[in-house]
């Protein structure tokens, strides 16, 4: 096609605006599993650089489906998604996913699992040394330095989820999609992992979109909370959480926000 365009018409694109471009911006998204009723519709949201956004909602309200559409694992029925200012048509190399189950590959050791996402055709090619450095760095970031030779069968649930997190980090994502990543863990490990996630997002200059149905988790972790509900699902309310960290040390503010969220849920149920 380009060959028939007169040369004079080919101009360099105008430079992208240097202004704060959002990491992820979705407009008016709708989605339905084939043949079914819409799971969600009219969903617009934004994730800004280095921001942790929690998508909070009851079971079955469509959080996971929305996350999968936002990550472009599924195509939306309507609406559009921009990632780093570009329309998103396929999973992006700078977006990484973490799920409830670590989903480690049992035939690879921890280091192999962390590096697994680094050598696919549609990922940027890395030199060997760069690849090894990234794996090392990601493993030590999640507190597993020196455990790279361990196999998934030899890891506890918490350690396995750390490896899954490291696998996402190794790709140096601009955005981390996480779907209830800690809900299969015991309460103590979960609290550790929540703190780790916040620390990592800050240190690695990434943004995160975290799906959860745990109100406390959302309050402890999020910069912004989006409450999802209704049929079909939509975003019914939004809170900006400006409670100072560590938030465990701010019980009054945390309790006030929790009550506010519970109230919003009450209203949602009444409709």
């Amino acid at each position: 096609m380009n060959a028939v365009v007169p040369r004079s018409l080919l101009r360099p694109e105008p430079a992208a605006p240097a202004a704060p471009v959002s990491t992820l911006r979705a407009r008016d998204l709708a989605y339905a599993y084939d043949g079914g009723r819409p799971v969600f519709s009219g969903v617009s949201l934004e994730v800004r650089p280095r921001e942790i956004v929690c998508l909070l909602g009851g079971s079955g309200c469509g959080k996971s489906s929305l996350l999968r559409v936002l990550a472009r694992l599924e195509a939306p029925a309507s609406g559009d998604i921009h990632f780093l200012g570009e329309p998103l048509q396929a999973p992006h190399p700078r977006a990484a996913l973490v799920f409830q189950q670590p989903g480690l590959l049992p035939w690879l050791d921890a280091a192999g699992n962390v590096g697994f996402g680094l050598d696919f055709e549609h990922q940027p090619r890395l030199a060997r040394s760069e690849r090894a450095a990234r794996v090392e760095h990601a493993l030590s970031a999640v507190g597993l330095a020196g455990h790279g030779h361990r196999y998934p069968a030899q890891l506890s649930g918490g350690m396995a989820q750390r490896v899954a997190l490291a696998r996402a980090l190794a790709r140096e994502p601009q955005l981390l999609f996480a779907d209830e990543p800690f809900s299969a863990l015991d309460a103590i490990t979960r609290a550790e992992m929540q703190a780790l996630l916040v620390e990592l997002v800050h240190r690695w200059h990434t943004a995160a979109l975290l799906v959860t149905h745990d109100i406390d988790e959302a309050i402890l972790v999020a910069d912004r909370i989006l409450l999802m509900g209704g049929t079909p699902g939509r975003i019914v309310r939004e809170w900006t959480v400006d409670i100072e960290r560590p938030r465990e040390a701010q019980p009054a503010a945390v309790t006030a926000l929790r009550l506010d969220i519970l109230n919003a849920l009450q209203v949602l149920r009444a409709h």
């Binding site: 990550a71 694992l73 999973p91 990484a96 996913l97 989903g103 996402g117 696919f120 990922q123």
Partner: peptide, 8 residues
């Protein structure tokens, strides 16, 4: 799902 998220 992992393979898909890597555009394998």
């Amino acid at each position: 799902l992992l393979a898909r998220s890597l555009s394998a």
